[in-house]
Each structure stands twice: as C-alpha cells, then as structure tokens.
Design a binder for these strands. Sequence first.
DNA 1: ATAACAAACGTTATATTATAACACAATGTT
DNA 2: AACATTGTGTTATAATATAACGTTTGTTAT
Lengths: 132, 132
Amino acid sequence: MAQVQILSRNQQIVLDIIEKAKGPLKAYSILFNVQKKGINAPQQIYRALDKLIEMGKIHKIESKNAFVACRSSDCEISKATAFSICESCEMVDEISDTKLSKYLSGFNHKKGMKFKRFNLEFFGICKKCKKD
Amino acid sequence: MAQVQILSRNQQIVLDIIEKAKGPLKAYSILFNVQKKGINAPQQIYRALDKLIEMGKIHKIESKNAFVACRSSDCEISKATAFSICESCEMVDEISDTKLSKYLSGFNHKKGMKFKRFNLEFFGICKKCKKD
DNA sequence: ATAACAAACGTTATATTATAACACAATGTT
DNA sequence: AACATTGTGTTATAATATAACGTTTGTTAT
C-alpha cells in the first residue's frame, strides 16, 4: 500500500539539498551546507543518508562516496541501481532501463548464489565534455 | 603483444598478500601485514594498489573499499568487472561470464554517452551462509 | 491521557580510508 | 652527460565514517 513516507526534519533537510544539487554530493559537503540550519555533526548527516537510502529516496555512488537523488521509479526501495558517470565532469545519471534491469535481476551466478540486489556503474565521457 | 609486466618490489609484496588472501583486503590491513617487510606508510600501499589496478592485477570492490586479486582473464586491463558479494560473510567472487560482459559492454545510454568501462556488484547471501 | 516503546536527535570522541608534498634513488632515453 | 620517468621513503594531514552516550520526540496500546 504505497504509503507516503513522512520524513523527519533532518532527513528532509538533507534530501532537499541532494535534490536541488546538479550532481552527486558528498556527506561533508552536505554538512557544510546545512550548518546554518543547526546541523553540526557528521553523524546527523550520515543517519539521515542511511534512512534516505533505505527508503529509496537517494542512492550512493560507491565509486565516488557521494549521493544522488533517485530520479527513476517514484522511489521504490532500490534493489537494482545503474548509473552513468562522466569521468571528466563527474556528472552522474541514473539509468532506468527496464530491459537492463530485468536482465540483471534475472542473472544467476553459477555458484548458486541468489542475488537480492545489484549496483552497476558505467564510466565514460559525457556528450558535453566530448565537445570541449 | 601481451608483455610480461614486471612488478616493483612493493607492488609484488602487495600483490602476493592479496593473492594469498581468501577474501577482499583493506588497504590498512595490507599495511599491517607488511610492516615486517619494511613498508611503513599508507602511501606505499596505495601507490602499489593504484598500479596493480592499472595493470589489471587486482580490482577494487567499491562498496567495501577493499581489494581482490583478479582471477578471471589472465589480467587484461579490466574494463568490465562484475562481482558477487555475500552480505553475511563478506565473501567476494569475481564473475566472469562472457554473455554478461558482452551485454553490458554493448549497452548504450540513451543520452549518447559512450561507455569505456563498467563495474557491477551483486549482493546476496552465499550458499555457505544460507546453510547456517 | 499516559505508559511503553521505537525512532530521531544532539554531542563528543575516535576510527578508517586516502592524499599532499617533499626529497632521494634507480632506470631508461636521447 | 643531461633529462625524463618511475619507484621509494617519510611526515603530515585531509576526507570519510562510526561508536557510544544521553535526551527528545513520535506512535501505539491500554
């Protein structure tokens, strides 16, 4: 019953910043940006980030230790994430491609391990950077 | 002409440890393990790790900040990596599946970005852990 | 309404992961 | 010989993340 998630104060503040951002944000850069709102400690950021990830509102880009808002499905808990990352400008795009997602969700390891979740990161140079 | 790579002293020491390990190793755990061999500083480890990655001898498991030896193709420069990770015992297995690799290497983003490289991490509970 | 519990908060301290910067040595190239 | 390239060793510090504690707020059940 797709219940509307109510966010706590800190969670909302952190989510707002990530959603407004044009690219991935790092935890400490979020922290510096919210100090005026009375959030002073890394713990407060990391706690909010953890919950937001659990809820599927944001994703962590593992190769960058940075966080982006979820733009694809209206934020189901994300068990299948894929991103396109520009190695020049650091831009990150969430890839939501049903075929890809189905293909990978159905992928089974020879050794009999059943997968619950995957994360895929593609790297390259984005169109914009290629022009320069 | 698949030239045999000659490793420097530190690179060889670090590679040996990673190859002997049963699971992924973290940089500082490598450091502690090689202090008897006269390596004292994180820089020395990270420098060796960087080169070994460039050479395709090892891979970084991004979600764990840890390193594993390359077991698949006899270590071409790795542009297409996939791993299966047990969330219980932390075991990591490199997946070398030609179909998967081809499928992903051929994948093209709508937005016209050409990918040079990808990294895929699957998560689940391995067979061994399921028994317990 | 209030007791009981869970979730979120604030804070201090600390652990873990990674890089900067500098000087020197070994090797290879021209 | 002069020069570039790669690797080394070292000290210092930056950046990322968690532990542990006590308090406050929000929910649910009676």
